[in-house]
């Protein structure tokens, strides 16, 4: 393992995450897998790295008060349940030898979907810009099926009266993704909160970061305890490089045009997904593999 390659990886992903305001966990884990870090370690270490990268963002939202602690706590409840279920699933898959496959498959689906959606969105935006059409901020409709669910609760900060079922459910899904894929899940949670739950955009990012920090922290501790899969040195190098890279990413991102950048990130995300897909389909150099069970360790 070359420390400079890891530093470079962390800095590059940090730069991108600063530029686009994404966590970057969904790029770190696949890059570590490409660098022959065992997927078990890549996922658990990725979760640990996300704790650090979400921390500074959450702090600034907390200072500005753009964070709904009550909503965040309900999300977090679902997230912790999801992470627990996810780690159980993770250990089961590892025992039956299907973990690496499932991680790769999930990443192919996730990166493929996110990359395609982002690419389409940015192409639309570029066309609009070319035709000099004003960007229409689509006002989300007032109610949908989500708002007819029972067990409603009032979230004062968000000025919303909402059933806890979809909130816990969303938290749960993100928790499973965190523990199985080593991502924070903000890139799914933020759109879901805006379009599905109709939560006001000003509290969405801060609240999702609040949930992400606690779920990734919980996942890191349980992964370390149950699977001994957290590499603290690797995680630390990634964190330091990541937070520094993010600062420069933010500065560059403010100067450049958004649509082209988004298209570029979309292409990058798709490329990583394609590379993982190719590895799944290509004939392996050896169809056999051997692992030590570690029962007498």
């Amino acid at each position: 393992m070359n420390i400079f390659i890891i530093l470079g990886m962390g800095a590059a992903v940090g730069f991108l995450s600063g530029m686009f305001g994404v966590g970057g966990g969904f790029l770190i884990t696949p890059l570590l897998i490409f660098y022959n870090i065992p997927p078990v370690v890549a996922v658990a270490t990725g979760a640990n790295q996300v704790v650090a990268s979400s921390m500074s963002g959450a702090l600034s939202h907390f200072r500005r008060g753009t964070l709904d602690v009550k909503l965040g706590t309900v999300l977090l409840l679902g997230g912790l349940l999801g992470a627990t279920a996810g780690i159980w699933l993770f250990s089961l898959l590892r025992r039956i030898g299907q973990l690496d496959l499932v991680i790769s498959l999930l990443y192919v689906v996730l990166l493929g979907t996110v990359g395609t959606l982002m690419l389409l969105e940015s192409i639309r935006a570029l066309r609009r810009a070319a035709n000099n059409q004003p960007v229409s901020l689509r006002r989300p409709g007032q109610h949908n099926w989500v708002h007819r669910l029972p067990l409603k609760m009032r979230f004062k900060k968000s000025k919303i009266y909402l059933s806890v079922i979809p909130v816990v459910g969303l938290g749960f899904c993100i928790g499973v993704l965190t523990s199985v894929m080593g991502v924070g899940g903000g890139f799914i949670m933020v759109p879901a909160m805006i379009y599905l739950l109709r939560i006001p955009t000003n509290v969405v990012v801060g609240t999702s970061l609040f949930q992400i920090i606690f779920v990734t922290a919980y996942t890191t501790i349980v992964q370390a305890t149950a699977n001994h899969a957290v590499d603290i040195v690797l995680a630390f190098i990634l964190m330091v490089a990541g937070v520094i890279g993010a600062q420069y990413g933010v500065r560059v991102g403010q100067k450049l045009r958004g649509e082209q950048l988004r298209a570029l990130l979309a292409l990058l995300v798709l490329a990583v997904g394609v590379r993982l897909a190719v590895d799944l389909v290509a004939t392996p150099s050896d169809i056999y593999s051997v692992v030590s069970e570690g029962v007498y360790r």
Binding site: A52, A217, T220, H228, I232, A235, F236, M239, V243
Partner: peptide
């Protein structure tokens, strides 16, 4: 430490991350 003191190791990993993020901010 990762194998024999797994829980404290996990807690320490999280604290290190929290500290790194906080210092960066």
């Amino acid at each position: 430490a990762a194998y024999n003191n797994a829980f404290p190791y996990g807690v320490f990993s999280v604290l290190l991350a929290v500290l790194t993020g906080w210092l960066a901010s």
